[in-house]
Every structure is written in structure tokens, then in C-alpha cells.
């Protein structure tokens, strides 16, 4: 296991969003004056109602879009392998076997399979799918597909992983399981995560920072710290601390919805 994460206040800055705005078609303000400092080792949840610009924020960070104004700076510059992404859908290539799907980021970098075979297999092992490497996505359940997507996002050991409601389409039980596994994975590879969700419970269980957003215009209205140690397990899920954090986050979210209405 890597060395313990630095306390929140002492972490190095990885990424800084300053006064970022995004406007569509000249009048839809998807994101207004967003300031967010992402530190190395953070698990940040973006929590907010539909349409508050969470996906837009992720697309801006990933470079799929450029901000209308403001800027996003990576400290130390962004390299080719610094980012992993997981979407709401597993987004696997149906024609490729599981192992080829996970190999994709390397393939697009031009790295031959023989050089990264061990990394690919290790990633599959970490998500518990080493037995399914020769399967096609069609043969897997929804939860297993999502695990493949997660393996693909972390196979290059990126500095930052972006996840846009990855578990929203899964049932409650699978979702809990994947939440636990995601935290275990993060302990194993020690990456920074920005995680978009609608669920108060999920955000509290997973993150050490929760950014609560409101819609019309999309903006950040509160930031909470979940000051509970990792590793977190089912015990944390039933603790009084957890309930307290959930209430805080829920209040903030209601405020967000109230302000928008």
C-alpha cells in the first residue's frame, strides 16, 4: 500500500480552475464562475441537481471543451497519460474482448501489448475480472462492464480520474459493492478522483471533499469536507458520523435546489 495520503490541507495542487465559465449558444449559462482547486490525492464529489453543469465541468477538465472564459491550469503541465475517464455508460467497444478494451489507452499511445501486458492484467485483477479477460462485453453484467470501464480508466495509472455518474444505472446492491471496491482501488493505486453524482449517500461514503452545485446558472454553492479516515467500509456506512455528514450534504443540496427554484 502506498504511503498514507497527506492531510487535506497539506496536499499539493494538481489542477486549478479559476473563474471558469461556459456558455452554450450564447445564452445557456451551463457554468458560472467556477473556482476549484484539485489537490493530489483528493476524492472530490460534484453533487447537484440535474443540469447544474457537473458534466460540463468534467468535459472542461478533460479538454473536450474549452471554457468560454476563465482558465484551467494543471500544475506541472498535463501529459498524455494523466487522465482516465469513466462515463455513466460503460462505453466499451462491443467488438473487442475485455482485455483489448482495457488495453485501449496504451494502444492509442502506440505502446505494444507485450510491454504493458502485466499492467493490463493487473488492472483486470484489481477489479476482479481476470477470469473474464477473453469475454466480450455482451457476455458481462452491467456491474461487470462498469468494472471493465474502471480498469480501463486506471490502467495507465493516471494522475486524475474523472467519473460521471458511473454507477447511476446500477442497482443498489451492485452500487454499494462497486463503491467499496472503488475505494479499495484508490488505496491500491493512489490516484485523485473527481466523481459526479446525484446521490448524497454515495458522495459522503466516497469522498473527502464534496462540492455542492446549483443549476440555472450552474455554479458552486458550498464545499464540504468529509473528515472521516480511509479505508471506509460497511461499518462507516452505518456510523453516526456518516449520518451526520449525510445530513450536512443533504441540507446543502436542498439549499441548492431551493435557490434555483
Amino acid at each position: 500500500m502506498p504511503a498514507a495520503r497527506a492531510p487535506l490541507a497539506e496536499r499539493e495542487t494538481l489542477l486549478q480552475m479559476s473563474h471558469v465559465e461556459k456558455t452554450f449558444r450564447g445564452d445557456i449559462v451551463a457554468l458560472k464562475d467556477m473556482n476549484l482547486q484539485v489537490n493530489d490525492g483528493d476524492f472530490i464529489s460534484l453533487l447537484g441537481p440535474s443540469g447544474c453543469g457537473k458534466s460540463t465541468a468534467l468535459r472542461l477538465i478533460s479538454g473536450l471543451m474549452t471554457p468560454t472564459s476563465g482558465n484551467i491550469r494543471w500544475t506541472g503541465g498535463q501529459g498524455n497519460g494523466d487522465l482516465g475517464v469513466v462515463f455513466q455508460e460503460p462505453t466499451l467497444m462491443p467488438w473487442a474482448r475485455v482485455v483489448d478494451n482495457v488495453y485501449l489507452p496504451f494502444r492509442l499511445r502506440g505502446t505494444p501489448y507485450s510491454e504493458v501486458k502485466d499492467d493490463v492484467l493487473e488492472a483486470l485483477k484489481l477489479v476482479g475480472l481476470e477470469k473474464f479477460q477473453r469475454s466480450f462485453p455482451r457476455e458481462l453484467s452491467g456491474g461487470m462492464k462498469m468494472r471493465v470501464a474502471i480498469a480501463r480508466a486506471m490502467v495507465t495509472k493516471p494522475r486524475l480520474i474523472l467519473m460521471d455518474e458511473p454507477f447511476a444505472a446500477l442497482d443498489e446492491i451492485t452500487r454499494h459493492k462497486l463503491n467499496n471496491d472503488l475505494l479499495a482501488l484508490r488505496e491500491a493505486i493512489g490516484c485523485t478522483v473527481i466523481f459526479v453524482t446525484h446521490s448524497v449517500f454515495e458522495s459522503v461514503f466516497l469522498s473527502d471533499r464534496i462540492v455542492v452545485m446549483a443549476a440555472r446558472p450552474g455554479r458552486v454553492i458550498r464545499e464540504l469536507t468529509v473528515d472521516a479516515p480511509y479505508p471506509r467500509d460497511e461499518e462507516f456506512r452505518t456510523s453516526a458520523d456518516y449520518a451526520g455528514f449525510c445530513r450536512q450534504a443533504s441540507d446543502a443540496l436542498h439549499q441548492a435546489i431551493g435557490e434555483a427554484a
Binding site: R59, L83, L108
Partner: peptide, 20 residues
């Protein structure tokens, strides 16, 4: 989404055609 993924991983035109 796969298109976006290819963009994020910096795929070339040829890779996009060949693999996607």
C-alpha cells in the same frame, strides 16, 4: 462517448478510423 474517449487519449485520425 467512445469518440470522446478516443479524443481524451489523443487518438490520431488513422487510429480513430482503424479502431473505432
Amino acid at each position: 462517448n467512445l469518440e470522446d474517449l478516443f479524443t481524451i487519449y489523443g487518438a490520431t485520425r488513422w487510429q480513430r478510423l482503424r479502431y473505432l
